[in-house]
């Protein structure tokens, strides 16, 4: 890496710290949300610089895209109620606690990073890649070696969606009326592209950067775009209610795959020999669908309600 690379990385790191500060400390909440979105985009760039394109894809799609849309819609509801919401911080509040606590955390993290085994676990992963059923190390770790982590991650998403839906019904109308016909046209034009890109990312996951999380995030973002373009949520309790099982499909399939091994006298999440490849593909499809629908469910801000309206869309 040349001098230009070092300068670029230094500027990137400084910008990340500055944006993180802005996102947490800006008095104007809109300013904070925009800082958070830009932080997500620059973070994705940082992951690219660290040669981790999988995480960069997920960060850009979920961290900047889906979370940004969620925060903006939450902000919109705050603003319509009582004017522009701002937060005032008391200068110097609790510095005596936060500076030592922050320094201790930073020290502990530095120590942990220092003590990591020097080349990491990359060699071990590559050595057992042949037995994993896929050709891409990241997918092998996510859905075979450390499938338990993926199970828990999808569990967290499901828990968040259940919590949000249990808080009340989705607001009606769901989105503000757009003063332009361009957005509905864009939604209709682009939704097939979203589906295509999601399928492509899912298929690529077995041998290259991609997989269930980026694919689910792209599909979920497409569904959110359709919602903004005026489509009505399709899954309501009175009709199509059973389709809500897709929300928990990923978690259920991962759990079943993990327990099946135990029942058959093997370790938890030990796949039967020879079936790892197809099994991982099946799990990826289930997890991708669940992630897409879960992100969309989060964005509904409540359980989709029955107003008797008819509509197309996700």
């Amino acid at each position: 890496m040349g001098t230009a690379g070092v300068i670029f990385d230094g500027l990137l790191a400084l910008a990340l710290v500055w944006l993180a500060w802005q996102a947490t400390r800006a008095a104007d909440l809109f300013h904070a949300v925009v800082s958070f979105i830009v932080f997500g985009l620059l973070m994705a760039l940082a992951w690219v610089r660290l040669e981790a394109p999988d995480i960069a894809l997920a960060e850009a799609a979920i961290g900047a895209g889906a979370t940004g849309a969620l925060l903006l819609s939450a902000l919109d509801r705050l603003v319509t109620r009582e004017g522009r919401r701002t937060v005032l911080y008391e200068p110097g509040a609790a510095w005596g606690f936060w500076i030592p606590a922050g320094a201790a955390l930073l020290g502990a993290l530095t120590l942990a990073a220092w003590k990591l085994p020097a080349p990491g676990l990359g060699d071990e992963v590559l050595a057992s890649l042949g037995a994993s059923g896929v050709d891409h190390p990241v997918t092998a770790v996510l859905l075979n070696f450390r499938a338990l982590d993926t199970l828990l991650e999808i569990g967290v998403l499901l828990l968040a969606a259940v919590t949000i839906w249990s808080l009340g019904r989705a607001p009606s109308p769901l989105v503000p009326v757009m003063p332009s016909p361009a957005l509905p046209a864009l939604g209709r034009l682009l939704f097939p592209v979203f589906v295509l890109v999601a399928a492509y990312l899912l298929w690529r996951g077995s041998h290259a950067p991609g997989g269930a999380f980026p694919a689910g995030a792209v599909l979920g973002a497409g569904a959110i775009l359709m919602l903004l373009a005026g489509a009505r949520p399709w899954i309501r309790s009175s009709e199509h209610g059973p389709w809500r099982w897709i929300l928990s499909l990923g978690l259920a399939m991962l759990l079943a795959a993990g327990i099946a091994g135990t029942v058959m006298g093997q370790a938890f999440f030990q796949y039967p020999p020879g079936t790892a490849g197809p099994l991982i593909l099946l799990l990826e499809v289930a997890a991708g669908l669940s992630i897409a629908l879960l992100l969309f469910a989060l964005y509904l801000r409540g359980e989709p309600c029955e107003h008797g309206y008819r509509g197309s869309g996700p």
Partner: peptide, 15 residues
């Protein structure tokens, strides 16, 4: 895709 998204976003913001 950027052209389409950027044109739509610019139109939406302006309107």
């Amino acid at each position: 895709l950027m052209l389409i998204a950027s044109a739509t976003a610019a139109g939406l913001i302006a309107r």
